[in-house]
Nucleic acid binder design. Structure first.
Lengths: 200, 200
DNA sequence: GACATTAATCCATTATAGTAGACGGTCAAT
DNA sequence: ATTGACCGTCTACTATAATGGATTAATGTC
């Protein structure tokens, strides 16, 4: 639905309208576990009145509240907010996997799996020739992951260290550091990022 | 990090602490696109002052604001909040990855990664046309896994349930059950088994 | 130097998220 | 019938999210 932004005089029509699906999603997750509002409140540390408001669409929860609710549900925020979550039997069809694309560069990222039952995420990344992306360490605390090159060659820079990963190579990452993914070759590079979420 | 809930006198320690990663994530997504706060504000319909606060961790955005930000970034909220990332050494070269083959059938398994720092295993399986392998539930107790089809079509029998997985599809498995991997088509099937080892 | 532009943060205000306790309804036991 | 437990929603209040405009700092041009 288009939103007219009066200050800038343009239509911004790209909102992911959480009010359209989040209330039902939260309620569904709670009822699926057979919890009352009181039980959910006790487990999450969010007041039952607030949970009731969220489920009735009368308030929009902050990220902090979402973190508490998802924790009580043993989910990441991402998994809780994933709308493929209610897909039965755990199958994530290719066509329904969330895809982010940058048309200018051809870079795209596909969320193959955001685990509901297991603490695992699989993200397939397409990095065109000559492109690179960087990641600050702070974005990825408490994360354990590996990179598997499906196609092409990837130069992986961490600090002043560089790994060249060819097709089929796999890299198990250690502690978070600032890093850069770089495809400096003349051909496309495709790789999988497998993330194990740890519990502190 | 444990949170003492005074009203209920218990420790609730299951929060997904968004303050630990969300600010940097939002900033990264913005900077990765080369947008200023003003440009991001214009595209999202969220004030630049608020975006600044979010990135500095001075405010926790509501789901509605997250919807707007993710929309401008061409992401779902779930994708925006998923954590993918970076780091360190531990390269497993293709040529050194352990490979098990059955010459008669052409079935082979490659251990892409057996995690030392992280409880993750990645196994690439090649299942020729007409072949199948079975696995009793007992083989993977305390194991959590997902299957991602890289090529071809896989019929996966889980108990009395059958999933047809086409190229790119991904299946998150539930509780351990007897299962069968079957390539009943006329072409090769290749798939990745990602296993998260849990501690009981 | 002056001036214009752009970026990010500050500030005062409004809107609403979030809470604790109260309320009314339902159900089971006595 | 009454009572107690539990349910979800209401209410009044506090805390903070979110805004628009102002301010500050940096940069580039003349």
């Amino acid at each position: 639905m288009p939103i007219f932004n009066e200050k800038y005089g343009i239509l911004t029509n790209m909102e992911d309208d959480t009010t359209a699906w989040l209330p039902a999603r939260i309620r569904h997750e709670r009822e699926n576990r057979g919890w009352s509002l009181s039980q959910f409140a006790e487990k999450s540390g969010v007041s039952k009145a607030m949970i009731s408001k969220i489920e009735r669409g009368e308030a929009s929860p902050t990220a902090t509240v979402l973190g508490r609710l998802s924790g009580a549900l043993s989910l990441t925020v991402s998994a809780l907010l994933s709308r493929t979550a209610s897909v039965h039997h755990g199958v994530r069809r290719y066509a329904t996997q969330p895809l982010w694309s940058d048309p200018e560069t051809g870079y795209d990222r596909r969320q193959v799996l955001s685990g509901q039952k297991i603490p695992l995420e699989l993200v397939e990344v397409n990095l065109p020739a000559g492109q690179q992306v960087s990641m600050p360490a702070a974005a990825f605390t408490f994360i354990q992951q590996a990179i598997w090159v499906l196609e092409g060659t990837l130069l992986f820079h961490e600090g002043d260290r560089v790994h060249q990963l060819d097709q089929g190579d796999c890299l198990e990452l250690g502690p978070p550091q600032d890093c850069i993914f770089h495809n400096q070759g003349g051909e496309n590079c495709r790789y999988l990022v497998a993330v194990v979420r740890s519990t502190p």
